[in-house]
Amino acid sequence: MIALLIRDLRLAMRAGGGFGLGLAFFLIVSTLVPFGVGPEGDILSRIAPGILWVGALLACLLSLDRIFQLDFEDGSLDLLATSPIPLEGIVAIKALAHWLVTGLPLTLAAPFFGALMQLESPGFSWIFVTLLLGTPALSMIGAFGAALTVGLKRGGLLMSLLVLPLYIPTLIFGAEAATRGMAGFSATTPLLMMAGITAGSIALLPFAASAALRVNLR
């Protein structure tokens, strides 16, 4: 299992743009939004949590097809499926690798992009905490979507259509928790709901995703 994690991380680094691409996309989103809505600080700081969350979600989506597609094409997935590691474990490890390469860097960088969006200083920690709790769910849900579409030739667009609706609850609770926290209200409920979605996704979705992979490998 560890070997698979190390391999996936190594592949992401060597393929170039493993960490960089998602972050660059995130930076571009944070740059483009002020051009779109204007430079007024109060508007920007008000919409910052939402923009950062949507940006993180889209950056996550960009790299989802890498989770299984390359391994499917070069035959590794067949070999992994017949290896001693259970397929559920393979799915979970690959989602973890995706999170380490995408979700974690975004979480760490989000406060800096928050500064670009004129976020006030208490907002930094709220963005950080909500993304830290929420991005694992994004990776796991994304792995499920990737498993559904792995056998398809033009799966990318279809996968977005399947995955984005599944992201809605995480996005709502995540952005809501950040907004409330910044405004000084209690954010316990949305935080707990989001943590629950993350925990539930990690516990259950590997089974659904591996079922989908088995169907696609037949």
Partner: peptide, 17 residues
Amino acid sequence: VVGSVFALLSRYAVNFW
């Protein structure tokens, strides 16, 4: 099956939102 769970979650999330 998975979508139903998330659709239900979305319903509650939207109410909350």
